[in-house]
Simulated assay, not measured.
Amino acid sequence: MKRTYFITGFPGFISSKLIQKLLMEDPNAHFELLVYKDQYYKATIEMDKLVKDSRYTIIKGDITLPDLGVDEETKNRLYNKVTHVFHLAAIYDLAVPEDLAYKVNVTGTEHVLQFVRQIYSLERFVYFSTAFVSGDRAGEILETELDCGQSFKNHYEATKYEAELRVQRHISELPTTIIRPGIVMGDSKTGETAKFDGPYFVMRFLDKFARIPIPYIGKGAALINLVPIDFVVNATVFLANDQRASGSVYHLTDPNPLTARKAYRLICETLLGKKPSYTLPTSIVYKTLSVPSFRKWVQVERETLDYFQLKAAYNCDQACEHLRGSGIECPNLADYLQQEVTYYKEHRHEHEKLIQVN
């Protein structure tokens, strides 16, 4: 049977890379892309770059609306045609307001689940969660764990947790694979990324103080879990086609993460050619970033600091076991950081890649 992939979150960076990989693996596939109306033009341009024929349909829709905001004729066509669903649409901003995060991440996922349950020939539903549904938990976090009474550092984490709870309620009735990535960086070979967020906030911070002695921020004993996008995409496509992955949850995380201090030093050395030389308490940096004028000047979200203090260690044994023999594994940060930094240096002044900090 010819595969038809229904994908939300396009033209986002991960969904774009996912489509590229799926095209390589399955040249005869058709793509049904649910795109928010404001992104329709951009989506059309992006797909014209990826596909030179009519193997895709762009559908104006909205996951926050019942029936995904599509008409009856389109719904019935999709119910009869779609074989695989990849749900990536979400608000990923760590500083997102609660109401917007809930509307998109939770209500939106509920609407996608209602849609998925109506598909006649569903082979796999792949839901993109995040490793950080663990919230403020400490110690080893297993792929089989979710609700452990944790609290959350921000509305992004809280709503992604609520959304995954809803997906897991249907995991016995739908052929579901849940993907929990760590902090996603650019491509390990080219450094390409769409937005300079996450660890790139560290690079933006270091840029501002490049000419003076650079401090460490806090003790940095926590493990920082960075993964390149090509690893995440390659692993996701492989698992989406693996029967063992139906009904399973995977931490697509680094099995050998660096401490935050080592990762910070490595970024500093690669970007500036020098090591940090003294330590500032995290509390001082956090208070400083609480001042809006300073935060806007340095262009760093204060929520980023929370991920340099995590006390969690993400067990990815099941992911490693199911990927064994595929040739897909997470590279060490030291092996690809130069590509990430080079790309950042070449594109750091491009407005569309900068997350605006308020």
Rank of each mutant, 00 (worst) to 15 (best):
K189Q: 15
A260E: 05
A163L: 02
L113R: 03
E123Q: 14
Y264D: 02
V232M: 02
F6W: 10
K262Q: 15
L333Q: 03
G325I: 09
Y156T: 07
Q318I: 13
F231D: 00
D67M: 11
E25I: 01
T64C: 10
N80I: 01
Q114H: 15
K296F: 08
F196W: 09
T282Y: 10
E46Q: 14
D254F: 02
P11Q: 01
M24V: 12
G139L: 12
F205H: 05
L146N: 11
K353G: 07
T253F: 00
I14D: 05
I91K: 15
G149V: 08
E352C: 05
L323G: 01
V227I: 14
E72M: 11
D207K: 08
G218W: 09
S16T: 14
N154M: 06
V184L: 01
Y36T: 05
D187A: 09
V133Y: 01
P66D: 11
F152G: 13
A101R: 09
V35R: 04
I284W: 11
I355R: 14
Y156S: 05
E143Y: 06
K189F: 12
L337K: 04
K219V: 13
E329F: 09
G325M: 07
V341I: 15
K153H: 12
E46S: 14
Y286D: 14
D207S: 12
N225G: 07
Q150I: 10
E352V: 07
T282R: 10
A245P: 07
L68A: 08
A334G: 12
Y79S: 04
H322I: 02
E164F: 01
F152Y: 14
H349F: 14
I171V: 13
V298H: 05
E110A: 13
G273K: 00
A89I: 05
P228Q: 03
E192F: 06
F308V: 00
T304F: 15
G61R: 02
K275A: 15
Q168P: 00
L310C: 08
T4N: 14
H351C: 13
L33T: 08
K81N: 13
G9A: 03
V85R: 00
H155W: 09
H351L: 14
R137I: 01
Q168R: 15
K160S: 07
P257S: 10
K311R: 11
I119S: 01
M203K: 04
E164A: 00
N234M: 03
P181S: 05
R302F: 13
R348D: 02
N154L: 01
E301Q: 12
E340W: 08
Q299W: 05
M1G: 13
Y343S: 02
S16V: 06
Y344W: 06
Q339S: 15
A245E: 10
H349T: 15
D38C: 06
T176G: 05
Q299H: 13
H87G: 08
Y102C: 10
D67I: 02
T279H: 12
A131R: 05
K353L: 11
E173V: 15
